[in-house]
Nucleic acid binder design. Structure first.
Lengths: 182, 182
DNA sequence: TGTACCATGTAACCAGTTACATGATTGG
DNA sequence: CCAATCATGTAACTGGTTACATGGTACA
C-alpha cells in the first residue's frame, strides 16, 4: 500500500494533475518508488472516491481536460498515520543474486559480461545521485535542504555504492575461462 | 520471470516435491527470492506443461500424495539462457524511504521508534548471515564452498550492513522533540 | 474415531505492466 | 485540415498475497 501514500506526499507538496504527477515521479520520489501514468490515474480515482483527495473544480468540458487534485484533511491524517505505523522491512528480492545462485549450478558462461554491464549502470546511477547531492545539499550549509530528504538521498548513494563495490569484487572471483563446473 | 528460474535451480540441486521446495525456499534461495507454497504449486504446474520439468512416476493415489519433480534438458537449457541474458537492474523500491520522504512533509512524529525497530531487525539479520558465513565459508579455506554462493551471501551481508549504518546515522539526524515542521 | 499433520490444490484479490483508445489544443 | 502533443482513461495480463478446501497418514 505504498503508491497511494506516495501520491498523497506529492500532492501535499503541490496540487497537481495526473500527468504532472507522472512527470514528477520520473524524478525525486520516483527514484525509490516509480509508477506509470496508468497506475497513477487508477490510484487518483480510488483516493478521490475514498475521500482522501478531491478534484479542484473546473469549468468547461471534462474528457481530455487537465484535472487537478488536492489533499483533503482525511488524506493528510492518513499519511501521518502511515508514516509512523509498524511495517516490516522488505526482504531482499533481487533477480541478479538469483542468477548468480543459478550460475553456481549451471555454470558461469556469459555471466561476466552481464555483471560488468550492471557495474557500469550502477556507477552511472551513483554519479547521478552524487551530483544531485552536490547541487541540493552543498557541504557546510547543512541547514539548507531538508535533512530527511538528504537522508533519503544518502540511502540511494549508499546502496549504489554498495552494488558498485560488490560487483567489482564479484567479477574478480569468476573463473577465468568460464566453463561448466565439475 | 524469476520464480520459475528459482525453482529450476532448486530442482537441479535436488528433485523435490512442492512442499519440500517451499521449505527450502524458507532458507537459502528464499533469502533473496521468497515464495509461498501456492506460488510454487502454480509455477510447478506451468513448468510441467511447458515441458521444462516432469513429475517422477508414482504408484497409488494422486490426490494428497507427494509428487516429485525433476528438471528436463529443456529446463536446464532455459536456466542457462536466463543466467547470462540481459536484464536491467531493479530500481530501488523501498517503503521506508517513502515514509521518510512523507515525514519531510507531514512531520516526524512516531518515526524514530519505527527506525529503531528496523535498525534492530537489520542487526539481527546481519548477525544471522554472518553466522552462516562462519559456518559455510570459514576463513582460510576458500576452496571449500562455492565462490558464487559466497558472493551471494556477501551481498546479503553487505546490504544488511548498509541498512544498519544508514539507520544508525539517520536516527541521529531526527529532530529531538518531534513536531510539525514550519 | 478424532485430531494433528503432511501434502496438494482453488479462488479471489491487489499491484504493477503493456497496449491501446479517445478527446482537446496548438501550430504549420 | 492535418499532425503533433497534451491529457485522461480502458482492457487485458502477470506476479504475488491471503484465505480457504480437500485428501491422506499416523497415532493416541
Amino acid at each position: 500500500m505504498s503508491l497511494p501514500h506516495a501520491i498523497l506526499t506529492a500532492l501535499l507538496e503541490k496540487p497537481s494533475s495526473g500527468l504532472e504527477l507522472t512527470r514528477r515521479f520520473d524524478k525525486s520520489i520516483g527514484f525509490f518508488w516509480s509508477a506509470t501514468h496508468q497506475q497513477i490515474y487508477r490510484e487518483l480515482g480510488r483516493l478521490e472516491s475514498s475521500g482522501l483527495i478531491r478534484a479542484l473544480p473546473q469549468a468547461g468540458p471534462v474528457r481530455g481536460q487537465k484535472k487537478e487534485y488536492e489533499v483533503l484533511p482525511a488524506g493528510r491524517a492518513e499519511l501521518e498515520r502511515w508514516t509512523a505505523a509498524e511495517d516490516e522491512p522488505r526482504p531482499i528480492r533481487d533477480p541478479l543474486l538469483l542468477r548468480l545462485r543459478a550460475a553456481a549450478v549451471v555454470g558461469t558462461a556469459g555471466l561476466e559480461a552481464e555483471l560488468r554491464r550492471h557495474l557500469a549502470l550502477h556507477r552511472e546511477q551513483l554519479a547521478h545521485y552524487e551530483e544531485i547531492e552536490r547541487r541540493d545539499f552543498p557541504a557546510g550549509e547543512e541547514s539548507d535542504g531538508d535533512p530527511l530528504q538528504h537522508a533519503v538521498l544518502r540511502a540511494g548513494i549508499g546502496l549504489e555504492a554498495f552494488w558498485v563495490s560488490w560487483l567489482a569484487e564479484t567479477v574478480g572471483t569468476l573463473p577465468e575461462a568460464p566453463a561448466e563446473p565439475a
